[in-house]
Nucleic acid binder design. Sequence first.
DNA 1: GGGCAAATTTAACAAAACGTTAACATCGGA
DNA 2: TCCGATGTTAACGTTTTGTTAAATTTGCCC
Lengths: 232, 232
Amino acid sequence: MTAGRPSILVIEDDAEIRRVLKVGLGHKDYRYLEALTAREGTTEVSTRNPDLIVLDLGLPDLDGLQFLKELRKWSKIPVIVLTARGKEKDKIKALDSGADDYLTKPFGMGELLARIRAALRRSAERHGGDAEPVFESGDLKIDFVRRQVFVKGAEVRLSPMEYRLLTYLARHAGQVLTQKQILKDVWGAAYVEKNLYLRVHMHQLRHKLEADPAQPRWLVTESGVGYRLRSE
Amino acid sequence: MTAGRPSILVIEDDAEIRRVLKVGLGHKDYRYLEALTAREGTTEVSTRNPDLIVLDLGLPDLDGLQFLKELRKWSKIPVIVLTARGKEKDKIKALDSGADDYLTKPFGMGELLARIRAALRRSAERHGGDAEPVFESGDLKIDFVRRQVFVKGAEVRLSPMEYRLLTYLARHAGQVLTQKQILKDVWGAAYVEKNLYLRVHMHQLRHKLEADPAQPRWLVTESGVGYRLRSE
DNA sequence: GGGCAAATTTAACAAAACGTTAACATCGGA
DNA sequence: TCCGATGTTAACGTTTTGTTAAATTTGCCC
């Protein structure tokens, strides 16, 4: 909501986790809403119009994934997904279905709050409408108009593919992107299986942009999932 | 004049008026081009890419107004319209359709020349952004008013095409321009596929301007994309 | 309008950049 | 310690860009 505090809808069947989240979120910065099932979640979303959703993938009635897919047909509300450890497949499927970020249980409240802040910030920028003509984070700078990339003020020369890949990551800065998503959007739908392309080009980008390519500061890999361009 | 004069396309069916304009325009300051019909005018525009158009509204085949509307879908070339006395309605419609100025017949040559100068100046300003009369970067200097180019203070002779290409790059200095963009704006819309023209002329420009043409300092290529004139 | 010089357009070929691929190394979790 | 996922490197083939010179067109003076 534009006025007052942002509202966060938690869709979660486990009472213990709900209790923790209610305490952690509802106190001062956010308005806390909750739903115990996907069905209930759907009505909550359409009647309360929350600013962000925290969704547990292991729901009793309807699969959380199914809920997400349905939601994405008509809404772009940011969704942070909670998964049980080891359910890597579900996590990736959720991201591919339009989730913005994920957290593996058990998680710390501090981390969840940080990810909520990041997602809300990205969402606000998206709504700001005008696509920023430059991206800046630390000493990495991308000028989309001039098609130039700088590290510490010095221009870096990128190939067409490298530039495409980097700008794609930058436009979704801070967000986890699955390998499939990246390949689909940067190379094209026919290339979703070509993970090697991504590895090689990511390596080249790190080589050109990172001070220490072995310890990347911006182009971080989310093992088992994909990559993320860290912002600031 | 080392770099060619602005070219003006006159679209006019009346032979007498054409004769007057040819004498008045074609003599020294401008290159005179002509077309007798709107159809002919369209091909002239797309193949010769003139700097300005003088258009008679009373054409035999297609209405001059119609021509103007079609033209404005793909080109911003300044157009000065000629109307017969009393056809006020047409005049207004022409301005609404994208004409830059108008003149009522009969008109004096002096007035037409003044309006042409004004329109060309406005057009140059539009393209240059700021109305800078000179471009300077390192020891490369372009005087847009005198149409002269200097390297380390010594004047360099450029062909008309070379000059057009260089000034186009200079007016977008620092920005990467795709081959298509350059071809469309420098050669004309009919030439967007003629990449070879661009390669050859770029080579000639480098030969004339760069200290080491193999390691260009200003006229850099953005592989897979296009070219860019680096500024300081 | 003919003829000359300059400019542009072609064509053929060379060089460089790029994407793709394979083979192998390394890392991190079970 | 094993295995899958990710990182690294170099080579290959293709596409893009550069180079040169010749053919054609254009502008222009007479």
